[in-house]
Amino acid sequence: MSTPVVTKPAPDAATVARPTVGQRLTAFMPVIALVVLLAALTVADPSFLTQSSLTAVVRTAAPLVVLAAGATLVVLCGGIDLSIAALCSLGTVLFAMWLPDLGGLTLLAVVAATGAIGALQGLAHVFLRIPSFIVTLGGMSIFGAVALVISDAGPIRVVDREATHWLTLYLAGVLPMAFVVALLVVAVVWTVQRFTPLDSWIRATGYSESAARLASAPVDRVKVAAFTVSGACAGLAAVMLVSRNFSGSPTMADNLLLPAVAAIVVGGTAITGGHGSLWRSLAGALVVTLLRVGLPIVGVPSAYEQILYGAIIVAAVALTLDRSKLLIIK
């Protein structure tokens, strides 16, 4: 982001900031939104609150959860990753192309490849000192082109459905495997982050990068790592999409960028960095999916979906923005 960060002196020496009412409200915003939405949908259509429709919702949400979770790390560092959707599309093409040769190893290969591409973006951001949204905007364009060229601009059918069959199974007959994997990703990344110094490094980088550098936090490595995880998550989301569509296509995931960004900001992760978590993005992704599924139920044409995303993004960012850090908004 090209927002100049102004370091203001702390108003008090010991500021144990008490959360204001607004902060308390935004802290629970995603959960409140989730409950309100579920309630509203149930009122609109009493048959909505059934096991099968809820199962369908979480199954649809799985790729979005994974995408949003990875990008959340980048946002926590104060950057943004606009390339996730294009990278995910590229991932679906790679998976479909590599599957005949690599078989069961394809999943790992795709996740490794997209992770490496993410790392490359992180390195470009850190070493060339280009704002992250430009690196990833450029990346979005490049990955789109690569996907078009290698796939010859058409969908690639996946014949061997055994390799992704396990993702379409249901755990205990109810929980879709894809959603379980998504939960696992969130839990594992969160655990690693929580029980290592990574958590404080990421937060420090997001809250005040210059202070983090002075405190000798490995800011550059943390950022590259965040981009790597974000890329790898895009790859995993790609495999989930392939398991559902039985094909890879160079534009398959392109329309997931807006929902993923919406999921992150609706979850309450501040776009200015530092404040937020992966669990918030999980809740945010569920909210976004419920909206998408729910609009037709309450009789709103799905064309309003886009308008709603736009409004949600702006409103959620306006609510969660840390204004003390921004004197000038560009």
Binding site: M1, I271, Q306, I307, G310, V314, L326, I329
Partner: peptide, 19 residues
């Protein structure tokens, strides 16, 4: 609303496509 321009314009783009 003091929302950075890359976010507001991403939102407005979605609104425009929706319209």
């Amino acid at each position: 609303l003091k929302v950075p321009s890359f976010m507001t314009t991403l939102g407005v783009s979605a609104v425009g496509l929706g319209v």
